Computed example of a mutant assay.
Amino acid sequence: MIEDEAGQSSSEYILLFGAIIVVAILALVIYRSYFQRSALNSAQDTSEVRNNTADEAGGGGTPPVNNSSEPPVPPSVP
């Protein structure tokens, strides 16, 4: 009593992808208010990160240029 299961895998993939799409849509609907509330401004965020790293490093916003032929020395770990 061996049954032919040749088309079973493709239908299982369709059901699996359909379930994933439904879960993704439900997650977007549930978290819609979070996405609408957040004001995403990548230019401002990028400049804040650059300013914070420059302040922590105690220097300017641009890294120093190494013009020597020696390999760069990795930073020391405290």
Rank of each mutant, 00 (worst) to 15 (best):
M1S: 10
I2R: 15
I2G: 14
I2Y: 15
E3K: 12
D4Q: 15
D4G: 12
E5H: 05
E5T: 04
A6S: 11
A6Q: 09
G7F: 10
G7W: 07
Q8E: 03
S9N: 11
S9T: 11
S10L: 05
Y13S: 13
Y13T: 13
I14G: 03
I14W: 04
L15E: 13
L15A: 15
L16A: 12
L16F: 13
F17C: 11
F17G: 07
G18I: 01
G18D: 00
I20F: 09
I20N: 08
I20C: 09
I21K: 10
V22Y: 00
V22N: 00
V23P: 01
A24F: 10
I25P: 02
I25D: 04
I25C: 05
A27H: 10
L28M: 01
L28F: 02
V29S: 09
I30F: 00
I30H: 00
I30N: 00
Y31G: 02
Y31N: 02
R32K: 12
S33F: 07
S33E: 08
Y34S: 06
F35L: 01
Q36G: 01
Q36H: 02
R37H: 01
R37K: 00
S38D: 01
S38E: 00
A39I: 07
L40N: 07
N41H: 03
S42N: 04
S47W: 04
E48L: 09
E48Y: 07
V49H: 03
V49G: 02
V49E: 03
V49I: 08
R50V: 08
N52R: 10
T53V: 05
T53K: 03
D55V: 12
E56H: 12
A57H: 04
G59H: 07
G59I: 07
G61P: 04
P63E: 01
P64W: 10
P64D: 10
N66P: 10
N66F: 13
N67F: 09
S69H: 10
S69I: 11
E70R: 14
P71M: 05
P71V: 03
P71T: 04
P72N: 13
P72F: 12
V73I: 13
P74A: 04
P75K: 15
S76R: 15
P78K: 15
